[in-house]
C-alpha cells in the first residue's frame, strides 16, 4: 500500500506511483499494510547502515531521516547503535 505524505490518501500496492496523488503531491511512500505506518525498516531490517565489506556501505537514507538512532551492521553481522546522533553544525 502507498500513502501520500501530504494528504494521507492511500493507494493499493498495484498503484502506478509515477502518477501524482489526487491532492497534487507526487510523493507517495510505501507503508506497512497491517500497521498503516511507513515501512521504514525495509524488509524487516533494523540497521540503517550496512557495512558490506571494508569501504563499501549501504545507507537507508529514509530511516536515517526518520529514526533517532543510527544502527550500523558490520560485515561480521555485529550491530552498533548510536543514540542519539547529533550533527556538529554549530547551530544551536
Amino acid at each position: 500500500m502507498y500513502k501520500c505524505i501530504v494528504c494521507g490518501r492511500t493507494y493499493p500496492n498495484d498503484y502506478d506511483i509515477t502518477k501524482p496523488c489526487k491532492c497534487g503531491s507526487k510523493i507517495l511512500v510505501k507503508i506497512n499494510d497491517k500497521k498503516g505506518e511507513p515501512d521504514i525498516s525495509f524488509d524487516g531490517r533494523v540497521e540503517n547502515i550496512t557495512v558490506k565489506t571494508k569501504g563499501i556501505f549501504e545507507i537507508n537514507i529514509n530511516s536515517i531521516i526518520t529514526e533517532k538512532t543510527i544502527v550500523i551492521k558490520d560485515e561480521s553481522n555485529i550491530y552498533y547503535v548510536k543514540v542519539p546522533w547529533k550533527p556538529n553544525t554549530g547551530i544551536e
Partner: peptide, 24 residues
C-alpha cells in the same frame, strides 16, 4: 585502496550528518 576506503568511511559519516541536519 587505503585512501579510497577511508574516503568511503568519511563519506558515509557525512551522509548521516547531512540527513540529520535537516531538522536544524
Amino acid at each position: 585502496i587505503d585512501e579510497a576506503q577511508e574516503r568511503a568511511r568519511e563519506a558515509t559519516k557525512g551522509i548521516v550528518e547531512a540527513l540529520k541536519v535537516m531538522e536544524k
